[in-house]
């Protein structure tokens, strides 16, 4: 059934839209180039999967995913607090690698490369999300709430403080605002929502393993965020639709399945390079990538 296919794409887009928006909070608004953002996604996914496997009710697991991921956001902010520029981004990348290595090696907890299969569909106060259609509705509701919350944050005075941190404004320091604390909070917020996205992902796909949260997915979300434009929530959402929707057109061309995977990755890479070369602000971006 074709509509089953479209619903599937829609769910993925919604989840990645949340992920992209959360990354934008860190990169676009707080100016922290977190190349390891996918780690928060993965931590949320594993947290939610493991908790529900141990009979924790879904809503609690969902929240726990966000909270636990934000703890790691705090950790990352602490680790990189004295770093800037190249050092900062590379350290965040290193952080992402280490989280991946832990997922891979702490097999008593995560089952390592075997992954966790059979992650159950959520049951929310009696609403059992068995079908993809109902999952789409649920995910969309969560996404709408999250985007609304983030919108409120960035438009508020607090949001302007974050942007001041990004712009390295002398004004921010002069006002006596604790830049250090703001950076930590920015990363924690970013991580929290990425963790929620991770939970949504895990319970939709029903199987996760460490390889999902490694390099190639880092490239995908950065492509989405950069193409959409930094500091633009609308940009991230629309970009997610385009970037994830476009390669699906490949399925309608008669290609052997072994070619679709690599071609998809190549499409992402090409789009990213083209945007960086010709329109680095992205579609709706307000600032340059620094």
């Amino acid at each position: 059934m074709l509509s089953a296919f479209f619903i599937h794409i829609a769910v993925i887009i919604v989840i990645y839209a949340i992920l992209a928006v959360s990354l934008n909070v860190a990169v676009g608004y707080t100016g922290l180039l977190n190349l390891g953002h996918i780690a928060f996604f993965g931590i949320g996914a594993y947290t939610s999967a493991l908790l529900t496997k141990n009979d924790v009710p879904y809503i609690m697991a969902l929240l726990a995913s966000g909270i636990f991921a934000s703890v790691f956001g705090w950790l990352l902010a602490k680790i990189t607090s004295r770093l800037k520029g190249d050092y900062l981004s590379l350290a965040t990348l290193g952080f992402g690698f280490v989280v991946y290595a832990v997922m891979l090696n702490w097999s008593k907890l995560t089952r390592g490369p075997l992954g966790i299969a059979g992650i159950e569909k959520p049951n929310i106060f009696g609403w059992y999300l068995k079908g993809s259609g109902s999952y789409l509705i649920f995910a969309s509701i969560i996404a709408a709430i999250i985007i609304f919350i983030i919108y409120k944050i960035v438009k508020s005075r607090y949001g302007r403080l974050l942007e001041a941190v990004r712009d390295d404004a002398i004004g921010a320091q002069a006002l006596g605002k604790n830049i250090y604390k703001l950076k930590i909070q920015g990363l924690m917020i970013s991580a929290f929502f990425a963790g929620i996205a991770g939970s949504l992902y895990a319970h939709y796909i029903s199987y996760i393993d460490p390889s999902t949260f490694f390099i190639s997915d880092i490239i995908v979300i950065f492509t989405i965020v950069i193409v959409g434009g930094l500091a633009s929530l609308r940009g991230s959402v629309i970009s997610a639709i385009i970037i994830l929707g476009l390669p699906e057109m490949l399925r309608f061309v008669d290609l052997p399945s072994s070619m679709i995977g690599p071609m998809r990755q190549m499409m992402f890479a090409v789009i990213l390079i083209l945007i960086l070369m010709f329109k680095p602000r992205g579609l709706f971006g307000k600032i340059d990538l620094e």
Binding site: A10, G131, I137, I238
Partner: peptide, 26 residues
């Protein structure tokens, strides 16, 4: 306007999802 576009986009998804929920009968 921006938020409106976002909500509209998501509403579109909901429509697709709602319309096709029938296919997911167990």
């Amino acid at each position: 306007k921006k938020l409106g576009i976002v909500i509209a986009g998501l509403a579109l998804f909901l429509l697709i999802g709602g319309g096709c929920t029938r296919t997911d009968a167990p």
